[in-house]
Computed example of a mutant assay.
Amino acid sequence: MAGQSGPTHGNLQAGGANADLVLDDGGPGERVRAPRRGRRVLGVLALVVVLLGAVVAGGFLLLSESLGNNVARVPNVFGALEENARPPAGNALTFLLVGTDTRSGEPTTGGDAPADVDPGSQRSDVVMLARVNPDGSEASVVSIPRDSWVDVPGRGMNKINAAYAFGGPSLLIRTVENLTRQRVDHFAVIDFAGFQSMVDSVGGIDVRVAGATSNAGVDFHEGLNHLDGAQALAYVRQRYDLPNGDLDRAKRQQNALRALLAKAASGGALSDPAGLYDLVDATSRTVSVDDTLSNNGLRSLAFDLRGLRPSAVTFLSAPVRGLGRQGAQSVVYLDDQRSSELWNALQSGTLASYAARYPADSLGGTPA
């Protein structure tokens, strides 16, 4: 099952191989001089950031096995899924990425969370499907609005984020697979407090804002804003006073991830072993992944992604037909026809042509 061992076609493989790599740059404070090593780390960090600082964080086990032990595993994510009801395995690697916003003062994901925390005890505020091409050179991230009105197996029509509350990762995976016809190979979840920790670990991020607004006591001015972790959290949480509410909020979340990658790449974290360790340590402590991703599997995945460039990561949103209400709930209706085009393009690795046809679905330079 791909959920247990990952696709074995092409170069990407999620489990098993022992990629015994070490960053041996002499000691903290010394800069990495080998261009090839720098590209490798950059490729891994691209997915660390793009994938909510989630699955590929373990790729930095190149630094330390103990970091891999920091990454919490969610048990039996794929065990409850019926194999004959799932989409067939492909030659790419697909991740389901979830962000939760409990507003709790204590961590709810990652190794620092209490052992009795139920990963499906709250609704998911971020749902992203990420696909990595077989050769590891390109990746795509598609946001699915959390209020999308979809069929939740065994529960009927409901918001997609309700699937996580009803049945945890397994039911959300079934729901997403039924909706997109894409097989999910791995699952990762991070809470918003973990995102805040990652932002602080790189000294803050820079984002552009289309118009002045405010949220949770934080004022955002038009143009470039420098945000620390707490301010970045207010930025990605905001939906009121934005022209398109939750739809703009989803684009802000993608924009913040893009900014985190840019800051890490330009601010020296990638070439400074100590700075790199701070970022990876923060990530590893705030992420939970499915238990099929062993430490060796994460190392192997990091090696396979050594050629990935930030510019080769495409951000898109699932197309929306309109907004409405179901009883007391505000919901999002997906555009079925264009969604079918999107999922076909994702499956075939032709998202660039899809994005050219529908530029409004792509992440622009300055979201609301």
Rank of each mutant, 00 (worst) to 15 (best):
V127H: 02
R131K: 09
N133S: 11
N133A: 10
D135L: 09
G136V: 06
E138T: 08
E138Q: 09
E138F: 05
A139S: 07
A139P: 13
V142N: 04
I144M: 14
I144H: 07
P145A: 10
R146Q: 09
V150N: 06
D151E: 14
D151N: 14
V152F: 15
V152R: 09
G154Y: 14
G156D: 12
G156P: 09
G156L: 11
M157K: 13
M157G: 15
N158S: 15
N158L: 08
K159A: 11
I160S: 07
I160W: 14
N161F: 08
A162C: 12
A163Q: 08
A165V: 14
G167W: 13
G167D: 09
G167A: 06
G168M: 12
G168V: 14
P169S: 11
L172N: 08
I173A: 11
V176P: 11
N178D: 09
L179D: 06
T180Q: 08
Q182S: 10
D185W: 10
F187H: 15
F187E: 13
A188L: 13
V189Y: 01
I190H: 00
Q196C: 11
S197R: 14
S197T: 15
S197F: 08
D200P: 12
G204Q: 08
I205A: 03
I205R: 01
V207C: 06
V207Q: 03
V207D: 01
R208S: 12
R208G: 11
R208P: 04
V209P: 00
S214E: 15
N215Y: 05
G217A: 08
G217T: 06
G217F: 01
V218F: 00
V218G: 00
D219E: 10
F220G: 01
H221G: 07
N225A: 13
N225Q: 12
L227H: 00
L227P: 00
D228E: 07
G229A: 06
A230D: 03
L233T: 13
A234D: 01
A234K: 02
Y235T: 00
V236W: 00
R237I: 02
R237C: 05
R239W: 02
Y240G: 03
P243F: 01
D246W: 03
D246Q: 05
L247G: 05
L247Q: 05
D248L: 00
R249W: 08
R249A: 05
R249S: 07
R249Q: 04
Q254I: 02
Q254E: 08
A256L: 12
